[in-house]
Nucleic acid binder design. Structure first.
Lengths: 157, 157
DNA sequence: AGGTACTTGTTGACCCATCATCCGAACCAT
DNA sequence: ATGGTTCGGATGATGGGTCAACAAGTACCT
C-alpha cells in the first residue's frame, strides 16, 4: 500500500511541505498583486490586461488566436473581449475571408490604458525576476517543467 | 521610460519566460489534476477535500480554524462546510462556550469518502515530490519563499 | 448595567476559470 | 448540391476565490 519506510508520505505532512499547496499559495499572491496593480492603474482586470498585451504583440487577431496565445479558455477570452469592446478599448472588424471570425485590435484608448498600467507591471516583473539569480530561475523553470509533466500524466500513481 | 539597456525587460518577453505566467500555468494544471482525481474517486471538490483533510488532522474544529489552517477565505470555507453537511459528510454541534461557532467533525460517511480519495491523492503527492530531488525541492521552496515575499511588497517597483 | 469594540460566521456581489453545448460558417467528400 | 465534419465563437451552468457588509455573540471597560 505504501513503501515500507514512509507511512506519512503524503497526507500527514504539514501543508507547507506540499508542493501543490505551496505553488497555489504563491500563485494566489502573485495573482492578487497583479490584480491590485491593474485595478489601481487603469482599472483593467488581469485577463483584460493579458488580452491587450497579446493584441499589442500580435496585432490584429481573432478570439481563437488570443485564446491560443494566452493559453486561456476561449470562453474566457470571448467574454473578456466583449467587455473590452464595451469599454471602447478594443475594436473589431469583419474578416472578409472568414465570416466566422472578427479581427480585433486595440483602440487609441485601449493603448492609453495599457500604457498606464505597463510601467507598473514591468516593474513588478522585474522585481520578481530580481528575487532570484539567473541560476535559480533556470532551476525553478526546470522544476516547473517537470511538475507540469507530472501533472499531465493521467494516473500519477 | 525604461532602463537604458533593456528595452524589452518586461513585457515583450515570450510568455514562457515570465515567472508569474509559468507559475500560473503549472498551478492550473496541478489543480486540474487534483480536481479530476477527486471527482473520479469519491466526488469531492478540492476545497471539500482540504476541509476533510484538515478536520482529520485537527479533530473537531470551527469554520474559523479551518479557514486559518487551510489558508482559504472564511467565506469559502463556510459555503464548503454547508455543502459537506448537506451531503452528510460533516456533522456540527453547538459549542456551549461560544454560541457563535459550531464545532465540526467528519461523519463515518465523510471518513469513508475521504479514504476513497486518499490513496490516489497520496500517490499524486508522491509523484510530484518524485519529480524533483531533495536538493531541487529545497531550492524550489526557497525560490517560492522569495517570490512570495516579493508578492507581498506593496509597490514592487 | 451599559457602552463599545472585537470576533465569528453568513450572505451577496463580483470576477476568474472550465466544461458542455449550441449555432453558423467553412470545408470536403461523393 | 447536399450531407457530414470541423472550426470559430457565444452562451449557460457550475465552482473557485475574494471582498464588503452584516448580524449575532463575546469581551472589556467604566
Amino acid at each position: 500500500m505504501v513503501e515500507s519506510e514512509e507511512g506519512d508520505e503524503g497526507l500527514d505532512r504539514p501543508l507547507h511541505d506540499l508542493v501543490s499547496y505551496r505553488l497555489a499559495r504563491v500563485q494566489a499572491k502573485l495573482n492578487a498583486q497583479a490584480t491590485r496593480i491593474l485595478k489601481e492603474n487603469g482599472g483593467l482586470t488581469l485577463v483584460q490586461w493579458r488580452v491587450l498585451l497579446m493584441l499589442r504583440r500580435l496585432g490584429e487577431s481573432s478570439v481563437g488566436e488570443l485564446a491560443r496565445e494566452t493559453q486561456f479558455d476561449k470562453a474566457l477570452i470571448s467574454r473578456t473581449v466583449q467587455s473590452l469592446v464595451a469599454r471602447g478599448l478594443v475594436a473589431h472588424r469583419d474578416n472578409e475571408h472568414d465570416q466566422r471570425q472578427q479581427l480585433l485590435s486595440t483602440t487609441a484608448e485601449g493603448t492609453a490604458i495599457f500604457e498606464t498600467a505597463a510601467p507598473h507591471m514591468e516593474a513588478r516583473q522585474k522585481a520578481l525576476r530580481g528575487a532570484m539569480s539567473e541560476e535559480e530561475r533556470s532551476l525553478l523553470f526546470d522544476a516547473l517543467d517537470r511538475l507540469e509533466a507530472a501533472a499531465d500524466s493521467r494516473d500519477p500513481g
